[in-house]
């Protein structure tokens, strides 16, 4: 008697886990992009996602704009914010010890969190999505369109980024600058401007993640804490690998949901980190990472 039901439950968990994992993956992608480009770990990446969701909330709910227009505007506003953050603040600390950049980005995260609760208040907000009420029923498995939309959007975004990095001049310039800044300058690449564009890009990606997350888990100024899980996802993926970040995110999303149902209480929030530790022990360079030894 349990056969049918547990199968349905399994499929549902699978889809939900994939969807949540995609969100982690997109935030992790932001970590990786910025790290690859400028060797800065942006610990405010989760907060950028939270801010992006709130900006979209303002456009869509408070201004009553069309969902897609609101989303597009939020991405543009946040991309500008990300770029400015690099130009005005982060750029100045390049060349300082790694510790300073860590403290700086953690501090920026705290400021974004308090800024958000001053502007939008500490309460939880919902963001309606055009997929809200659509439900698909396949063989007794109820799938919400909101979750499927997340999967499709993530897939599209990955294809877009792949094309962008492989075929456009700006994308290639970003890759070049991340491999060797000195050489990139000599090839005529405006390295500083390229780094700021990377910040803009990863703020834009974070915004899309935030807007997709809002309908399934509501948003408040502390939503940025997801950044921690995304960070774990980036590490599992090999910190520096773009596909690795997405796969790492999906892995963590699946582990979280499945362990919440199939394992004893308490594992939901720790299982992801147990896997992280296991990966670090067995394969310290991450699942997709190149061997990270520095040549001397």
């Amino acid at each position: 008697m349990h056969g049918g039901r547990s199968m349905a439950e399994f499929l549902q968990l699978l889809v939900n886990g994939l969807a949540v994992g995609c969100i982690y993956g997109l935030v992790a992608l932001g970590f990786v992009l910025i790290y690859k480009a400028g060797e800065v770990v942006n610990f405010a990446q989760g907060e950028m996602m939270m801010l992006g969701a709130f900006v979209a909330f303002t456009f869509i709910v408070q201004f009553g704009l069309n969902y897609w227009i609101g989303l597009a505007l939020a991405v543009v506003v946040m991309a500008a914010f990300g770029g400015l953050l690099d130009i005005v603040v982060v750029r100045r600390i390049i060349g300082q010890p790694q510790f300073s950049t860590v403290m700086l980005t953690i501090g920026l995260g705290v400021m974004m969190r308090s800024g958000a609760s001053m502007v939008w208040g500490p309460e939880t907000r919902g963001l309606p999505s055009p997929f809200d009420k659509t439900v698909l029923q396949i063989d007794g498995v109820v799938l919400s369109a909101v979750y499927l939309a997340i999967l499709v959007t993530t897939a599209l975004l990955c294809v877009f980024l792949l094309g962008f990095f492989r075929f456009t001049r700006v994308g290639l310039a970003m890759q070049a600058a991340s491999q060797n800044q000195l050489a990139a300058y000599c090839m005529g690449i405006p390295v500083k401007r390229v780094l700021s564009s990377v910040w803009a890009l990863s703020a834009g990606v974070a915004t899309i993640a935030g807007v997709m997350l809002a309908p399934i888990s509501l948003i408040d100024p502390n939503t940025g804490a997801i950044g921690l899980k995304a960070f774990a996802a980036a590490v599992i993926g090999g910190f520096g690998s773009i596909p690795g970040a997405v796969v790492g995110g999906i892995l963590i999303g699946l582990i979280e949901l499945f362990s919440g149902v199939y394992l004893p209480e308490g594992f939901k929030d720790t299982a992801a980190y147990i896997v992280l530790l296991a990966v670090l022990v067995v394969r310290p360079q991450g699942l997709f990472g190149a061997v990270g030894r520095k040549k001397v």
């Binding site: 890759q175 070049a176 491999q179 060797n180 050489a183 000599c186 090839m187």
Partner: peptide, 17 residues
């Protein structure tokens, strides 16, 4: 100072950037 993870061809193509 080369782009170490790229092929020779890719390095040269970047020269045309």
């Amino acid at each position: 100072e080369l782009f170490e993870h790229a092929t020779l061809l890719q390095n040269l193509l970047l020269g045309q950037h």
